[in-house]
Amino acid sequence: MKRREFIRTAAAVGAAAISFDKLQAAVNSSTVAIETAPDLVAVMGGEPAQMLERGLKELGGISKFVKNGHNVVIKPNIGWDKAPEMAANTNPELIRALVEQCFKAGAKKVTVFDHTCDNWQKCYENSGIKAAAEAAGAVLAPGNDESYYKEVNIPDGVQLKSAKIHRSLLEADVWFNVPVLKNHGGAKMSIAMKNYMGIVWDRKYFHANDLQQCIADLCLFHKKPALNIIDAYRCMRKNGPQGRSLSDTSLLKALIVSSDIVAADTAAVGLFNQVETMDIKEVGHIAIGENFRLGTQNLGKLNVKRIKLN
């Protein structure tokens, strides 16, 4: 909400000299030329890069988030040794486009990493993300070794009071959470909140100590992503998070972008329900996240922009 308020105030102060009344009326009726950025943007019907560009444009462009000289981290889901069309990992073209956008905005360096489940080199390689990200100038950081992680306290966590988090993320000026939309055997859905699990070293602790609670606890980590960019170009309908074959996937050609992680996941579950039934109540971590005031499930309260590209 802060951004909107800031724009309103800035615009109001600047315009006050001319005609305060007129502007106030304009702001109230939302017809003012300085349009307020939406809280959530969903784009459908394009290629990943195209949808990303459009989504970011609606939010005011990448330069609202990435400043000159920034050290940027992108955290896709690269958990599995699977080809891009299996939708087990984030779409490499989306990552390539995002890296390019970051550099365009003046980023000094862009680092991409995930703590993979399968062998990390194979995951980086076969997901296509290594090639795509490196082609755009990013550096792939390994997440395979405990030495890359540093203990961070999560004071408000219920089950998870601290976690070892990847150092590149701790050192970043800004980071983007870029999950793929997937069904998940354990957590029911793996979207933006679940994607956080790849920033920590010890995942087993999560499984042993109430998975849903731990996922939400981890999202309390003080450094929030600038945006959650959910890749739903191809989603994994079932047998997630790995999938067994192409029949587990569906081509949705969609993208959801929001800084509100709960809203983003809620919207993504809604989209997911277009191809496979999933009761959002079963995805326990989303409701816990809302209770933690990490965001809202009530999309009606938000300024949501839905765009269909043709």
Binding site: G185, Q212, Q242
Partner: peptide, 22 residues
């Protein structure tokens, strides 16, 4: 843990490449 703690887990199935564990 699903039996002993009544919490979700599914880590085994999640990692199973063939979904033999489902």
């Amino acid at each position: 843990v699903v039996f002993t703690d009544n919490t979700s887990c599914g880590a085994c199935s999640e990692h199973c490449p063939t979904q033999a564990v489902h």
